[in-house]
Amino acid sequence: MAQDCDKPEKNPGESAANPLGVAGRRGVLMLGAVAATSVVTIRPALASTAASVLNCKIPIPDPPHTGQYITQDGKLVAANTKGAVAPPPRPITGEEAKKMINGQSPAGFDPSSREAYVNYIRRLQHGTSGFTCYASLQAPRP
């Protein structure tokens, strides 16, 4: 039985041999081969409650830290810290947070504080008030 048809797969130098556009074993990265979307999100169950997403609230800061200021990169610091911004007058709703993340400034909030608030929201972790709301916002809508 002839075995010479068993070609080695690796064949460096031959380009355009990677139709799936995946990062090949030769370190070739196809930038233009992926015509369709390259990102599929597996939605967590909580994201299916789309109606409640826009009405959920994100307190800034979370209740244990009421009154603290927020730095531009979203960290909590003592009130009146220079360079930090005052907390918003009321919790931000999911809809407002979504607008802020998209670069808009919803009514009732100081536009110059938007970046600090957005960065605070991005830093939210499990167990912090508002996290679930933020996580819901991150999930694509049906």
Binding site: L29, S38, V39, V40, T41, P44, A135
Partner: peptide, 9 residues
């Protein structure tokens, strides 16, 4: 808390 499937690049 979301999971995504990504293709290159």
């Amino acid at each position: 808390g979301a999971t995504h499937l990504l293709a290159a690049p």
